[in-house]
Design a protein around this nucleic acid. Structure first.
Ligand SMILES: [Zn+2]
Ligand SMILES: [Zn+2]
Ligand SMILES: [Zn+2]
Ligand SMILES: [Zn+2]
Lengths: 116, 116
DNA sequence: GTAAGGGTTCACGCCGGCGTGAAGGTCAAG
DNA sequence: CTTGACCTTCACGCCGGCGTGAACCCTTAC
């Protein structure tokens, strides 16, 4: 399928799909005229990518994640690369930190609005 | 006082103080040689600015806030400009939205890490 | 004189997923 | 042939408080 069809199937913009290729998350084949040609398995793959992006992962982490999954050199998903596991943990900590920071902001804003 | 002294008194970098002037939050006098000359009241003012920035306010909102306070055309702080009050409310809503979004990210990340 | 330690303005970089053109090729349909 | 809907690559913009130079002036101390 071509890019617009994959875009419609996944609900992801064509620009985003091209961006995912730039980041190494997708490697579609090319037709004779240079058009990107996707497989049906790319639909699943894009869904996975969207899930991870919505979890806060950056494209580089996603790429390593997908590579780790594809090569399967670490068995199950639970046995991830140590550095990948460490990155996920550090991301969790950063999310917690940002959450606490947001709570602080929110309370400070309340104090500003009420006490002026 | 000169900029480095105000920076040391407030714990804010000289670059940030110049930035605040660019945004209209500070209007220091100038010496004959062009140096910024600050008043002691600027120490309090910078503290107010830092409080509002740590509450998530942008410089433009802070400027309108300070203008509203300085002109005093709306009485007490509790009687703020309607649009300023609206902006603070919308900021609160955005903070809540980002907080919910972060919670979602966090739970999705947990699901990723555990269920793979 | 000169070196050091202030000060000044100007301006790019960051962080990153993606929007949004611009300029141009491909391919169907009328 | 021409229109139009696709596709391509290249590249800047966003969001914003501030770091971080570069290039240059003022003042004091030696
Ligand atoms: Zn691996
Ligand atoms: Zn007012
Ligand atoms: Zn970037
Ligand atoms: Zn900006």
């Amino acid at each position: 399928m071509l890019i617009s069809e994959l875009a419609e199937l996944t609900g992801v913009s064509a620009r985003a799909l091209r961006h995912y290729e730039d980041c190494g998350l997708l490697t579609p084949a090319r037709s004779g005229s240079g058009y990107r040609v996707y497989t049906e398995s790319d639909v699943t793959r894009v869904a996975q990518i969207r899930t991870m992006i919505s979890a806060g992962l950056g494209t580089s982490a996603i790429r390593r994640y997908l590579d780790c999954v594809r090569t399967g050199d670490h068995g199950t998903f639970l046995e991830m690369c140590p550095d990948l596991r460490a990155e996920l943990d550090s991301l969790a900590r950063r999310l917690d930190a940002r959450q606490a920071e947001l709570r602080e902001k929110r309370s400070r804003l309340d104090r500003l609005t009420s006490a002026g």
